[in-house]
Design a protein around this nucleic acid. Structure first.
Lengths: 207, 207
DNA sequence: TTTTGAATTAACAATAGTGTTAAACAATGA
DNA sequence: TCATTGTTTAACACTATTGTTAATTCAAAA
């Protein structure tokens, strides 16, 4: 038994991941997943029963990756300024490795209260811990007068905003270049934004 | 003739706008648009021939609104710091009036090179003018030593990032509240972010 | 080698959603 | 009033996509 079950099941999952991530649930066709995976399309129903089941496997996995990604970075004990720089850079690198992830998750939670609730329940406990540790550091620095008073949640939202949005911009700048509109060399766009974000966030912290 | 053509055509357009904005092209059903508009679903094909035609009407209109929104705000002649504050606030207010717009546009351009190109060609000329005016102001202030050297494009991307992302966060914070996770009073979340973004951006500009 | 059960295939059923059509209807102008 | 033209309706055709099934293949254990 189990001739090459893992191989088939795995290649379906990989193809599904690729399709769902780039197209979203609604645009993705199970036939196309099967074609990509190089298997008969009945296999998808054999292993996962429904498109929705298959989607949920992918979604759950990606949601966990997203939930873990950010807040773990904060764990390393460091002085505030180095920590902020480090967090911004590592979060940015995480996005380099998972450029479609935030958009994928957001697209799918927007029309599903269950999924939204699932995500929030995954994020909340970690976020709470991180905020509870970060806020005192910010308060201490503010008391010393090295930074302006800063809400930890705002800082985190700002970091995520600037980093994630850099990836949202990427296709537009690439399109500019493709249309011969020289606005910025797309080649180094992400590298540039990474530096720019670090500087802007550190500068935004200061008095 | 034209019994109440405008009424039917208009209500289809309004229902279509609502559905496409919240669900995107792929999830939206023309039958549901018809139901929402209170018309026979053949009317959609009578007035617009295809779902895609109808979608393009909505998309084109929304894209124009988006393209006009941001850069016009910069036109008012003002000292730099007041101008930046003013731009951030007005852009934020624009998003209050059009909360789904950025996500809608982005979702649809991501898988369509034509639409991406269309958007870029709409944005580019205005952006160019705005940048060409803004950069000298930034350079002058930097020469005076009131701000750190700053790339105009980075500043604009930062403003859009922080503002747009505040609206992306909203459903998550609402969901937190719904699940009894008290992280922030959702009631005032947007007002809070508006202030926070202005301060952070101004602070990020300074030396 | 035979048996067993999982894996695979092709063909098909079911459904949902888009688009078409012919006939009925309503408004307007002659 | 009648003819014309644009509007609306219900019924249907077409298509794409998901999901099912029965028959077949294959690998391993007895």
């Amino acid at each position: 038994m189990s001739k090459n079950k893992t191989s088939t099941e795995q290649s379906i999952l990989e193809a599904a991941e690729k399709e769902f991530l780039s197209q979203g649930f609604a645009r993705t066709k199970t036939t196309e997943i099967a074609r990509l995976a190089g298997v008969n399309h009945a296999m998808i129903h054999y292993y996962f029963r429904t498109k929705e089941n298959l989607f949920n496997m992918v979604f759950q996995k990606k949601m966990m990756i997203l939930a873990d990604s950010f807040f773990n970075i904060f764990e390393k004990p460091q002085p505030l300024f180095e920590k902020v720089r480090y967090v911004v850079e590592l979060h940015f690198d995480f996005l380099v490795a998972n450029p479609m992830l935030p958009f994928f998750i957001y697209s799918e939670i927007i029309n599903s209260k269950e999924k939204r609730s699932l995500l929030v329940r995954s994020l909340f406990p970690k976020a709470r811990v991180t905020l509870a540790k970060l806020q005192p550091d910010l308060d201490a620095e503010a008391a010393k007068g090295t930074i302006r008073p800063m809400d930890a949640l705002d800082l985190i939202v700002n970091i995520i905003s600037l980093n994630v949005f850099s990836f949202f911009c990427l296709p537009l700048f690439e399109e500019c270049e493709a249309n011969g509109m020289k606005s910025i060399e797309t080649k180094g766009f992400l590298e540039h934004r990474k530096k720019s974000n670090v500087e802007f966030i550190l500068s935004g912290l200061k008095k």
